[in-house]
Structures are given as C-alpha cells and as structure tokens.
Design a protein around this nucleic acid. Structure first.
Length: 204
DNA sequence: TAGGCCATCTGGTCCT
DNA sequence: AGGACCAGATGGCCTA
C-alpha cells in the first residue's frame, strides 16, 4: 500500500519538518528573502532593475584573476563585465526558481499565515509530491465509488436495495483493505475524503 | 554554539 | 559565442 503510505507521509511531513511546517510562530523572515550578502547591494524590492547592477562592484571576483575558461581570452575589464553579467543571469534564474517555489507553496495545503514561517524548499517539494500522490489516490477512490454506484443502478431495484452499505460490499473499491466508509469531505484538505486523511481519522 | 536554511558566486558542461 | 543548467563553496541569519 504505497499510496496509503504516501498519504500518511504527506501528513507526517509536519513531524519531519516540524518547525518549518505548522508551527514556528516566529513569523516569516522577510529579511532573508533574496537577502543580499554584505558584499552586495542587491535590492530585493527592485529585482528587475537590480539584475544588471548588483553590488558586484566590490564582490569577491578579483579583477584579472578570473580563471573562467570563457573569460580567459578577454581583457580584465571585459572579463569582469562578463562575470558580472553571468552572475546577474544566475541570480535571475534562481529568483525565477524561487518564484516557482512560492507558486507551489501557494497551492499546497498548509498553514499559510504571516505568523507561520514559510516552508523550506525541500519541505515544499516533499509536501507537494505527497500531496499529488494523495490527490491521485483520492481521485482513484472517487472513480471506484462512481463505478460502484453505476453498478448499483444497473441492477434491479430490489437487488439494489439489498446491497450492503458502501464500504461493506464485496465489491468495495478497496480490495484487501478495511478503510472506513466515510466519503464526507476532509476538513483539512477539501480535495480529499476523510478516509484518506490521518488528520480526520485520528480525531477522537 | 551547532546545525539548518538560504542567497550568491563561481567554474564546468551542454545546448542552440 | 552566449545562454541555461548544475553543483560546490562560502558566508550570513536564525533557532534549538
């Protein structure tokens, strides 16, 4: 039952990455976002304009000492200019990557709040992966349920009236499992049914 | 203070 | 040749 394990692990990530996930009421760390190193004057509020003129003027790149193969045949000034350009491109690329991660964070369910620290990169990816697996499993459950209901409709009315309740039928969509029949909505994850959700099933 | 997380720089590699 | 992508190194910030 890898799927169930995945659904569980989706939720148990909160334990693995506890301080980053649902707790840590210490507030986001705005100063950290795209924070420039002391050697730079990168301005997080003006990303586009800053890309081509960060504080590399006094960065660690030593003029004339660059060993970059691409820079080897250029004059020191050109080398430095090219190096700055490459740095800016890489910075922009990483910012785009972080934007994408922010987009991912915005669509996976966890406590979005200014008072809760945002997910780390690795936590975001792991949570997203497990959320996808959980959603796929929920979809499969719904498909089975629909198939089950359709099958019931095709039977005669007296036969259908004698069908066991969902979850106790021999054709219950979870062969080999005894998942409780509770297709009601999950309170934590609206896309899922509560039988998939540890958050719900653990409730007293 | 150690460890986690992050942003940035850098050089290498691959692709167009 | 130039750009994209990647991984290693480095240093800063924050938390337990």
């Amino acid at each position: 039952m890898d799927e169930m394990k995945s659904a569980d692990s989706y939720l148990s990530l909160a334990q693995s990455y506890g301080h980053s996930f649902y707790g840590a009421l210490r507030g986001a760390d705005p100063a950290r976002n795209y924070a420039a190193t002391p050697s730079m004057d990168f301005n997080p509020n003006s990303r586009d304009s800053s890309d081509e003129q960060t504080g590399d003027e006094e960065d660690s790149y030593e003029q004339g000492k660059g060993s970059d193969a691409k820079l080897g045949s250029k004059k020191p000034k050109e080398q430095r200019s090219l190096r700055l350009s490459i740095n800016a491109r890489e910075r922009r690329r990483m910012h785009d990557l972080n934007d994408a991660l922010d987009g991912l964070r915005s669509v996976i369910p966890y406590a979005h709040s200014p008072s809760v620290r945002k997910l780390s990169k690795i936590a975001t990816l792991l949570l997203a992966k497990n959320y996808i697996l959980m959603q796929a499993q929920a979809l499969e459950e719904m498909r089975r349920l629909v198939a089950y209901l359709n099958q019931g409709q095709n039977l005669s009315s007296n036969l259908s009236s004698s069908l066991a309740p969902f979850g106790q039928s021999p054709v219950y969509p979870y062969p080999g499992t005894n998942v409780p029949a509770s297709p009601e909505k999950c309170t934590a994850f609206p896309g899922a049914t509560s039988s998939l959700c540890k958050h719900c099933t653990d409730k007293p």
